Amino acid sequence: MKLQKLLLSVAAAGLCMAAPNLTQAALITSWDYTVDAAWQNWTPGTVNQFIEGNEDVLEWGTENQGGLSQLRVTRQLDGTITTNDGVGSPGATITHRNFAIDPPELASTDLVVDVTFAPTGNGFVAPFTQTFFIDFDETPNSLPCPYPGANEVPCDDIFILRNPEDLSVSFQVDDYLYTATLVFDEAAFESAGGTIGFEDIDGDGIPELFFLTRENRASILPTNIVITAVQVPEPAALAVAGMGIIGLGLATRRRRRQA
């Protein structure tokens, strides 16, 4: 499945959350937003975590040549998003610095992201917290490379996002349903030798959203946050709000799916 189609389906499946009514029922055209991101629950515990500038960094391995491997993510950012502009505004950037190393190797980590949306010039705030479950494979640099379509020797490394359905979140204000979707900048990632795909690449029978990265490079993955809005007739709006309450309850009980 192409990534664009995946993101469209993700947007349709985002969590719905009822928001307090504002004084006006008009479409909200501009949103101020903040993003706070951090790595948590990495395995093995010997992976080193530290803060460098505005990045949260995971570093692992015993240096073989070139340096240690790293995952980096932007810690904090803010800005303004225009509704329905199709472009959005910058989200957090993830960088994988990929080097040939000896163990220990990163196996998995959670990326916890706190986001707030506030209509520009209005006191109402919609806060969300989302955890992205990431499995990582520091592949051996010898044939056969373990993943189809990957570059051969040195083999690409891979990280897999296990809950791509959580790339979108929806919330209702008056009779408009707003959906915020995290969109990956594929062109920038590919320019650094990276590849994004959505298929069953690990052979478990379930399609995965995966990211392949070249050896001896820093693969940079910028993201954008896009907000779209649709008007919801009042009876349907009430139903959506009810579904949102149910969905929120399920989300609080979500656990990492085993690979």
Rank of each mutant, 00 (worst) to 15 (best):
D135S: 12
S89M: 01
V173L: 06
A18G: 15
C16V: 12
L27D: 05
Q24R: 13
Q40I: 15
P119Q: 04
D78S: 15
N141T: 10
M1R: 06
G149F: 11
G244C: 13
P127E: 11
N41L: 11
T228L: 01
L238K: 14
T62S: 15
L27I: 12
T95C: 02
G91P: 01
I28W: 06
A192Q: 09
P103R: 10
I196Q: 06
S219M: 07
L68T: 05
A118K: 15
C145V: 12
A180H: 07
N98A: 14
L71R: 04
A25M: 12
V115S: 09
T120N: 07
N151A: 15
D78E: 11
R97M: 10
F136M: 05
A187Q: 14
C145K: 11
F136Y: 15
R255C: 07
D36H: 14
N163R: 09
L3M: 06
G197V: 05
G242S: 10
D174K: 10
W39F: 15
V153E: 13
L77W: 04
M243E: 05
I245H: 04
G67M: 04
G45I: 08
T34H: 09
E199K: 06
I245S: 09
N141V: 03
D85H: 10
G86C: 05
T195F: 09
P222Y: 01
N48H: 14
V113W: 00
N216R: 13
R255H: 13
I160Y: 03
N163Y: 08
I134L: 14
V125I: 15
T109P: 00
G53K: 08
E138I: 01
N41A: 15
L106F: 03
Q24E: 14
E190A: 15
E190Y: 04
V47A: 11
A100L: 12
R254Y: 11
Q24K: 13
A241W: 02
A229D: 02
Q65S: 12
D137Q: 11
L71W: 13
G86Q: 07
L68K: 15
R97G: 10
T129N: 12
L68V: 06
D156V: 01
V183R: 11
F117T: 00
T181N: 10
G121P: 10
M1F: 08
T23D: 14
P235V: 09
G249R: 10
E199V: 03
I201N: 08
S168M: 02
